[in-house]
């Protein structure tokens, strides 16, 4: 097989992922586009591993590592997205412009009580 086929497919898939990351608004869809980009990299790694016939199979080992890291990334990313959705009420990237919690004033006594409880527990 010509090496051009998997390499071009990986390049095009990566570009599709770049478009998705830049153009999407929902955070979960951005994460899906990131998965597409990671898969393009995986395809490149596997193709070059088959081309170079590496005796250590570094390409395939690295692909396995990438898949595992992507699984960990999507788990943590979705946990963060759910936390952001719970605090600010939206999963829209364009509306998440402030770093701080918008209703921090109302949450002040709760955090005081929580710290008090923590101090009592210690």
């Amino acid at each position: 097989m010509h090496l051009v086929y998997p390499a071009v497919l990986a390049a095009l898939l990566f570009s599709v992922g770049v478009y998705g990351v830049l153009a999407r608004r929902n955070v979960v869809l951005v994460l899906m586009s990131v998965e597409l980009m990671l898969n393009a990299v995986n395809l490149n790694l596997v193709a070059f591993d088959a081309w170079l016939r590496d005796s250590l199979h570094a390409g395939q080992a690295l692909t396995l590592f990438t898949i595992t890291v992507a699984a960990a990334e999507i788990g943590l990313g979705l946990a963060i997205v759910l936390l952001v959705f719970r605090t600010s009420g939206t999963a829209d990237i364009d509306r998440l412009t402030a770093l701080g919690d918008p209703n921090e004033d109302t949450a002040e006594p709760e955090t005081a009580g929580a710290s008090e409880n923590k101090a009592a527990a210690v």
């Binding site: 390499a7 390049a11 990566f14 570009s15 830049l22 153009a23 999407r24 608004r25 990237i93």
Partner: peptide, 25 residues
């Protein structure tokens, strides 16, 4: 579902695709 800067994103993606495909081929 799509952000307002989708045309900029399309331009960036097409530029990346053109560069990468040319280089790889």
């Amino acid at each position: 579902a799509d952000s307002g800067n989708r045309w900029v994103a399309l331009g960036v993606a097409l530029a990346a695709a053109g560069t990468l495909v040319t280089l790889v081929v």
